[in-house]
Structure formats: structure tokens, C-alpha cells
Amino acid sequence: MKEITITVNGTAHTLQVENRLLLVHFIREVLNLTGTHIGCDTSSCGACTILLNGKSVKSCTVLAVQANGKEIQTVEGLAPEGSLHPLQEGFKENHGLHCGFCTPGMMMRASELLQNNPNPTEDEIRWGISGNLCRCTGYNNIVKAIQYAGAKIRGEELPSTEPEFV
């Protein structure tokens, strides 16, 4: 057991944890923040992506003790209660989710992507989310959602959210 202090979405938590506790279990089962999902549990799918000191990481492959003294942001911390982050708005407006399982991880990954590169090309977005798997959407609407969020963050005119019929 080890005493750790982790700041999650702005609130510091000091707790005794088992050394082998994975960060994703700390988030979901100790803090009851269940927006972070467990998908593959093998660092492939990205559903458990959170920000650790501002960097997107797969929380199924980080130990809670490794996050001692660090700051975490989960999907619950993207926007204040009652409001939507541009990414959340983008996913909503563009139907960027079907079942929604991958969505929190997609948005957390995209939030670091847009932080580093506020105006990514489509190619950069697709490479940028290459560590996140979605089995419903075919990714097109996820890419559009991220483009929408980028435009919103840059304060530019928002792209059309009309669905494309092929």
C-alpha cells in the first residue's frame, strides 16, 4: 500500500492504494468517475484515455502510484456542469458517436491534439486518433466533430453539420 495524492479534475484526492491498482480502476472504482471506459484492457483501443499532466495516456496501462503528485483530467472535467466543451458539442452536432463507448477516450485524445495543433488537417486528425478504436462510426463523423471543435476553439465559422449522403 502507498499513500498517493492525485488531483483529478481540479480536486486533490489523498488515499492509500495498493501498488498494483491501475489508474483506470482508481478513476472508475475509487473515485466513481465512470466516464472513463475500459475497452480492450491492453492499451490498444484508447477507451480509457485521460490526460496526465496534460498528456493523453491510456489509463489501463498506468499504475495509480505512477500518477502520485500529478494532475489528471477525465471526460467529466472537460466542461463545467451544465455546459459543453467544443468537442462535446462537436460530437453531438456531427453525430460523432453511435454507441458512445469510445467517445470519452476520443474526446480526451482530441483535446490534447487540439491543444498542440489547433488547426489540424484531416490527415493529422486521423493519425492523431490512431490510438483510439471506434467500431460503429467509420470515423468520418468523429473527424468532423474534431474539425468542428477546432473551428469553435479558433473562433471561426463552424463547418456544416449536415450529414453527407453518398
Partner: peptide
Amino acid sequence: THLIADPQVRNM
């Protein structure tokens, strides 16, 4: 580096 794993893994 572009070909190693994915962006999240490359962050760690």
C-alpha cells in the same frame, strides 16, 4: 517514432 504504437503510448 511515427510508426511506434500510437500517440498515447508515445506520450509514455
